[in-house]
Write a protein that binds this DNA or RNA. Sequence first.
DNA 1: ATGCCTTATTTCATAAGA
Length: 278
Amino acid sequence: MRLATWNVNSVKARLPRLLEWLDEAKPDVVCLQEIKTTTALFPAVEVGELGYEVAAHGEGRWNGVALLSSVGLEDISRGFPGQPSYAGEPSDADGQAELTLLDEPELRTPEARAVGATCGGVRVWSLYVPNGRTPESAHYAYKLEWFAALRAAFAAELGLYDQFAACGDFNVAPTDDDVWNPKVFIGSTHVTPPERQALADLRALGLTDVIPKPMKGPHPFTYWDYRAGAFAKDMGMRIDLVYASPAVAGRVAGAYVDREARKGKGPSDHAPVVVDLD
DNA sequence: ATGCCTTATTTCATAAGA
């Protein structure tokens, strides 16, 4: 079984490249992030013509995740129990849009950042972890809260499923080796100890970080900024991860970052991570 | 060995990404 995860940065803008990539890489299960469209407007017909069933979970302009599977798609979960949500406040006089966590969870607006399903005997999740923006912002606190709730939800899931894989854009680089220059990221999100601890807390559930092989260079980066020729200079980060249960980790026959998908005209800023399971 | 930001929407400006 070939399992893949890819932050496509708009499934509409990326559709030609997505279809081309599916046809070429032939994954059985695909986790997509940042589909940036609604559940109803996901291009299920086009993807379906390639043999995939679709579980989309979208909200519109931002976020949105999806699962594609050619090996079955059952028991779909949109979001997870205890998932924190956000409610926005209007922009202030400086034009700074400021969002605050509301005390009353029922008043918060949910975000489409997680979809799970059972595909070919494996419980698979496509995740888009909040960015956090800056360590001082409410978005960062939200990110950590989101991770904590995810951990609790996964603890419950792991009691039900031996074959389990959580894949997606985790928006955290697990180690300094996972960013092109650690000095540049001092004081930034994605590398802070609490964020890395949140990943460690997930691994403490028994999950293994399936580290892919880079197709080129020493680092299996999965994201390169669009600006300043970052991809050409390999100024990247490894933030798209596959966290596998022992039963799935034991089946890993290979894993790689498909950096070819980051080249050429109109790419996403992320590359797919592909994992082959025996 | 690759191309110097991109996306969707509140569209000719803004918010967000990481």
